[in-house]
Each structure stands twice: as structure tokens, then as C-alpha cells.
Design a protein around this nucleic acid. Structure first.
Lengths: 332, 332
DNA sequence: ATGAAAGCGCTAACAC
DNA sequence: GTGTTAGCGCTTTCAT
């Protein structure tokens, strides 16, 4: 059996309450230094580890934060960055990080009541609002600190850190149109695209310039777009430029164009969105709309933690702008 | 207050014990279907969510598994893949995934007793043996299911899934030497390199071929190696080939070589290690030693879960071979 | 088939 | 300063 607080108490010749005090409240003056040190030493020797479930039961705090991430359309280092930053902040504040990866399957499971929300002190919901809502059966619990972060799917009535892609998207389109490119395609895996800021920027910029829309649907990830773009070009010829819904698609498209012997940007300009590190390491680095992820996550963490400390604070809402960065893939 | 099992009991006119039975033991025959359905319905209506801490306290099970990952030298999609696979398996078995990212800092903190091991039902320790050991104060708890996975730092006395890089490394070296390349450098961030299978393969292959060693130390990640390789080449000229400790370094080196106008593989061949998806999307995809990550993680998960079910099963140990894949970056 | 009661390991209020 | 006591919400015997 694992050693408990009572075992330590017996060995140190005190009550278990005293052990609890000695171990937990570093600055509690109502205990003598001698006793405290003796207890700490005894606990160490006996290899005492607190039972977190027991502590959580009585305090109502688990010491855990859930990072709830939507993983359906995005596949790579992007989410790792998110996880990494969140973990770093949480660790520095002595919280553990529970990772909840959600997707369409989560929605299904939630409907059948086969998935339940995590029991944690707070939730960072990153692009995962629908799944989180579904897990809670539609109604978010009033007293659980939650912060939504990301570009869309933001929840209402909770703290939020929103990423604004609009300006970056318009800049990207201006950049492409300004180069005199006429046939500019929009490559996306998003089926409900019509209220996405990237899509909106694409459509309205093209309309304004009097250019025809060319919207291409693709699977998500890299391998799918890679294959698809080759076939597409074979059938309909190559566009002058491709504005991609995200960087993974852009990287796939880049590779697909190279596969069929087309040069980027000589033949086709490619622009992505997200700011994945990977885009910088290609022979012709990909222009992209950089999202200040670290900033977003740090702020998100700050918001949950602040609300844990003070549940009644006013709701916070920050919008963080992403920025278009022109690189070689679009002749930048 | 949150609704408890007692609230449901009162509403359904039964004892709380009956509620517990109805909700948890789907196949317990000692309860009438009528009662069970009534209780389930009541619970649903009231929005009952079990308190996991309370359950954990009495059952001794948290329903959580920790994925303990070493994050000091590795930086990108690699760890995301690990996390993703682990999460998928664990979710399908109704376990939550706690992510514990550890590094040199963890070792320091552990020494000062400022970090404690997670309270979970099992731990998957991926390349993180020293940190995990430190968190437990040197001695792993006898009855906690742990599996070590990865290429090194494996623990003793627990289940393990080891990745064997040796064969792949020798293949890589044979491949480079076989092309008649003479000046082959080894680019690494690993300071205690001398028992690493990649290093061993490099040294012994070079010796056998009568070629001089050229070991280059680099920071980890991508940006560091990128910068470093440019400076190195300026000072000492370019090697014929670079065997890199991992794919991030390889990607950085590739980019660094392109920065200074060198062609890969025309001027310098580049070989990496890990099998990151990113390596396939460069203009000249990078040859690498592919680690069957999904396989490794699935097996690791299987081992912990099996040991949770049966603590007395014999210790398992599997070695999984990684495989060298020649691509364009080394003229493959 | 259901209820009563014990207790998991811990914290915190209160007694001394 | 330290000990005693009462639960936290749940599962699980043991009665009935």
C-alpha cells in the first residue's frame, strides 16, 4: 500500500492534521519549525506522495487544466505549438495539463452520451467550441472557468482570445492581385466556408478586382491536397496563384505543383495561413498569415487562471491580429 | 452546487447506492430494468456528472494515463504524432491523457522536490526515463504500470518498446559511402553522443572505409542548425554529405545549405533521422531513418493497459526496427 | 432487488 | 502549536 498522511503522522508522532499543515501551508505560522522540519523529513524518507484524488475531493480543485483542441482539419506542428506553450505556462503555475483532442467523432459520441467533459479546474477551448458544447450537453457549467481561443467557433459568455484573420487575408489578396495575377484560386477543406474571414477576403477582393472566383475543394492535411492539385492542374491548367485555407494545404499544394513540374512562384504563387515553422524551410518559403500563437495561448492561460482565482471578475475579450508575411512562394 | 448521486437518488426515490449501481454497472443483474431506466433518465434530466475525484478516491483508479515526453531536443510534429496516437488509443479505451512534458528543467526541479509525479493509472515514458526517475526520487513505485518507449533512456524492470536505430543508421552510412562521398560529417546536438546508435554507426562505418571523422555540434531545433551550417561551410568548406542526428536538424541544415547557395544533393547530400512528414515536402525530399511511431505508441498503450488489467503479467519487451529510406536529398 | 453503513485519504473548522 | 472531528462524493460490502 502507498504511504498515507496517517503513516507519516504515526512515524513522526503527531496527528495527521499536523502533517497536512506542515506539508501544505509553507507559511502557516501555527506550527513550530522543529515539528515542521521533522515531519517534512519523515515524509521524504518514507517516500510519501499525496493522493491527489483525496485532496481534490475535499478542496474541489483537481490541479488540472484541460486543453481542448479541435484536431479534425489541422495536423501538425501547429497543435504541438499550442500544447507546448499551454504546458509551459501551466507547469509554471503548478497545474497539470490534460489534453482533450476532439473532432467530428466527439460530436457523435457526445450525442449518445458516451463522452463526458473533463473534471478540471478550467478549460482552454481552442477552435473546439462545438465539441466542448456537445460534451456538456449544450449548456456550459456556470462556475467552470473556460476560455475560448482561436479564429472561430468562439463561445459566448466566457473569456475569449480571438484571432483575427481578416486583415491578414485582405493583405494576402492585395499582394497577389497587385502582382497582376488574374487566375487566383482558393483551396480549402472547409465545407461551411462562407463565413470564414479568409473566404470573405478572397471573394470580396476578387469581386472588387473584377476577377472570376475559382474555389477548389480539397481534403485536409498535406497528402490529400498534394494529390488533388496535380490532377486539377492536369484537367484545367494551372492558376496563377493559389490562396490556401491553411499552411498544411499550402505545403501539400506546393509539393503537388513541384510533382507536376510547375515552379513556385514562377508558374504559380502559393499563399498559406497559420504561420507554421515548416513553411520557412522549403526551397521557396511559403508566404503565410502568421498567427501569434504563443501570445494567444499565454493570454488564454492567464485568463483561466485569473478566473480560477476570482470567479467574479468581468469577462475578458481580446482580439489578436494575425499578419501576412510575404515570402518567396509568392515572389515576396 | 453540482448535482450529486444523492440528489439523483432523492429525485428518483431510491438510495444513492442504487443510483451508483444503475449508472455504473451496465450488466449488473441485481437491479430491475424499470428502476435502472428511471434512474438513468432522472440523472440525465438533472445533468448529473460524476465527481471523478470521489470515484478515484474509492476505486484507486483515476482513469488517466500520463504521457511523459522528453522535449529538450525534439521540437515539432514528431511529438505531436506521439501525442496524437496515444490520445486516440486511450480515448478508445475511455482513458484521459495527461501530458507531462519534461526536460532538463524537470531534473532540476525534481532535485529540489518541486515537482511530483502524476497520480495516474499508468505512465508511458517516451525518451524520458531520467526525468521520470527523478520525479519519483530515484525509485519507481512497484505497482504503477509504466512502459518505456523510444530509442534510449529505457528503464529497467518495466515493459518496454524499444526503437532500434542501429540497422537504419548503418544502411544510411553504407548508402552515403557507396556513392563515393568522402567527406561525410555527423551533425548532432547530443552532447553525450558516444553510445548513440547513430553515432556508433557513423564512427564505425567511417573507420571501416578509412575516412576521417567530422563531427559537428549544433543547437537543437531547426533555426540553430540552419544558421550554424552556413557559418561552418564558410569557414571550412562544405562536406560531401551530412548525416544528421534527427530530421529537424536535417531540415535546418538543408535550408542553411540552400541559404548559402549550395544544392542538395548536388553539392551536399543530407540524411536525417525520425521520419517526420515534413521531410517529404521539400523540393528534394530528405532521406531519413523512419521510425514506425504509430506502431510503437500503440504497442506502448497496449502494454500499460494490459498491466493495469493484470499487474502480475510477465514483463514485455519488444524491439522495433526503424528503416532507412533513401530520397532525393542524398540522390536516392 | 434495494437500502444502510463503512470508509477511501485528505483538508479545514474547531477545540484545547 | 497541536489534536479531534467532520465530512468531500463515491463504491462496495453486508443486511434485508
Amino acid at each position: 500500500m502507498r504511504v498515507t498522511i496517517r503513516d507519516v503522522a504515526k512515524a513522526a508522532n503527531v496527528s495527521h492534521a499536523t502533517v497536512s499543515r506542515a506539508l501544505n501551508r509553507a507559511s502557516d505560522p501555527f506550527i513550530s519549525d522543529a515539528t515542521r522540519n521533522r515531519i517534512i523529513e519523515t515524509a521524504r524518507q518514507m517516500g510519501y506522495q499525496p493522493n491527489r484524488a483525496a485532496r481534490a475531493l475535499v478542496t474541489g480543485r483537481t490541479g488540472q487544466i484541460s486543453l481542448c483542441l479541435w484536431t479534425e482539419n489541422i495536423h501538425n506542428s501547429y497543435q504541438w505549438n499550442v500544447t507546448h506553450v499551454a504546458h509551459a505556462v501551466m507547469q509554471s503555475r503548478s497545474y497539470e495539463l490534460l489534453v482533450n483532442l476532439v473532432g467530428y467523432k466527439t460530436l457523435e459520441l457526445a450525442e449518445k452520451n458516451l463522452v463526458s467533459p473533463p473534471s478540471v479546474d478550467g478549460i482552454i477551448c481552442y477552435e473546439a467550441a462545438p465539441a466542448l458544447g456537445a460534451m456538456f450537453g449544450g449548456a456550459l457549467p456556470a462556475h467552470l472557468p473556460i476560455v475560448t481561443a482561436g479564429t472561430y467557433n468562439l463561445l459566448h459568455g466566457v473569456d475569449r482570445v480571438a484571432i483575427d484573420l481578416s486583415e491578414g487575408s485582405f493583405d494576402a489578396m492585395r499582394h497577389l492581385i497587385g502582382q497582376g495575377r488574374k487566375r487566383i484560386a482558393y483551396l480549402t477543406n472547409d465545407k461551411s466556408v462562407n463565413k470564414d474571414p479568409r473566404y470573405i477576403a478572397y471573394v470580396s477582393s476578387m469581386n472588387e478586382a473584377g476577377l472570376p472566383l475559382e474555389i477548389i475543394e480539397t481534403p485536409s492535411g498535406r497528402a490529400g491536397p498534394r494529390l488533388l492539385i496535380g490532377q486539377y492542374v492536369a484537367e484545367r491548367g494551372a492558376p496563377d496563384a493559389i490562396f490556401c485555407h491553411n499552411d498544411d494545404i499550402a505545403i501539400g499544394a506546393y509539393r503537388g505543383l513541384r510533382d507536376v513540374g510547375l515552379g513556385v512562384p514562377e508558374d504559380v504563387a502559393v499563399v498559406g495561413c497559420d504561420g507554421l515553422e515548416d513553411t520557412e524551410y522549403l526551397d521557396n518559403p511559403i508566404s503565410t498569415i502568421v498567427q501569434p500563437l504563443a501570445r494567444v495561448l499565454e493570454l488564454s492561460c492567464e485568463y483561466v487562471l485569473a478566473r480560477i482565482d476570482n470567479p467574479d471578475r468581468p469577462i475578458e475579450s481580446t482580439v489578436i491580429k494575425s499578419k501576412f508575411v510575404a515570402r518567396e512562394s509568392s515572389g515576396g
